[in-house]
Amino acid sequence: MEIDDLKTIFADAWFIRAFEDCVAALSDAGKIPGLVHLSHGSEVADVMLRRHLQPAIDKITGSHRSHSLALIGNIDPIALAAEVMGLSGGTGNGLGGTQHIVSKDTLFLSSNGIVGAQVPIALGAALSARRLENSGIAVAVFGEGASNQGGVFESFNMATALHLPILFLMQNNQMAQSTHVKDVAVVNLTARARSFGMVAEQVDGADIVSLENTFERLIQYIRETSSPVFVEVSVPRLGGHYHGDQSCDGQSKVDPLVNLQKLLQAQDMHDEEIQTIIDDAKARAKNAVDEAQKQRDQSGESLKRYINDHPQLMGNL
């Protein structure tokens, strides 16, 4: 990685941070129908993942906490913000919402309101890639909480049994809503994944050199061998389970973005230049969210149109 790579990573990660800060402000202002689960803490790890994916052939599925993945996964930030607010111009025209971002033809495929359900779905994207012989891979991103779901265990086994090109990317932020991982799993989760017969490694989500090396090496391995890989990335959850949830604050946390900033400073980058990158990211995020706010809530119309367009799905004919 060169210094320019570091700047780009810093800028991209800050854009996600600023976008999520805008979403938090929208929520505080009462402009979001439900609760939002923000990505604070995983931005750097997500941007590092993105460097090794190919949007034309790869697919990501994510959890309820997927705004960051949607942004690295080529979802238009305006469309994402609009969907989070339930407005027209969103990925689902306001019918899906923050936990149900579904998109065709983008690197990001879908997020999910059910913990762990995105993991079997990623198997299907991997199967399509293998059948269509395009050397694409699927990435199932989930938390350590989801790693205790049966469907996730089934998926580990299915992927090894069928030789599917999939990266199981577990972002371990130690907290499943309010439950600490040490209270619900007594073994090392990477070791547990390895027991299914796949390569399984752990990496520090604040260490970009390790992230770069791990993703580069293992994603290439998945493409070349059509084999599954498990990676556990430790990331902090820098807020509550959802925005406004105060129940889990007070833990000591390292912010990977602050670490990255220190790295840039150690590379003799001036504070003014760093501040310019941050200010620019904030401005871009604010522009996207402002643009989305110009959209109206036409979700009622979207619903009527859906009903009208799909009589065969309405039960009675």
Binding site: K59, P120, I121, A125, L127, S128, R131, G151, M158
Partner: peptide, 16 residues
């Protein structure tokens, strides 16, 4: 069943 029904859904979303 969870894994292969989910796999079918994901495959249906991506071209199969």
């Amino acid at each position: 069943e969870t894994a292969f029904v989910g796999m079918g859904i994901g495959a249906a979303m991506t071209g199969l």
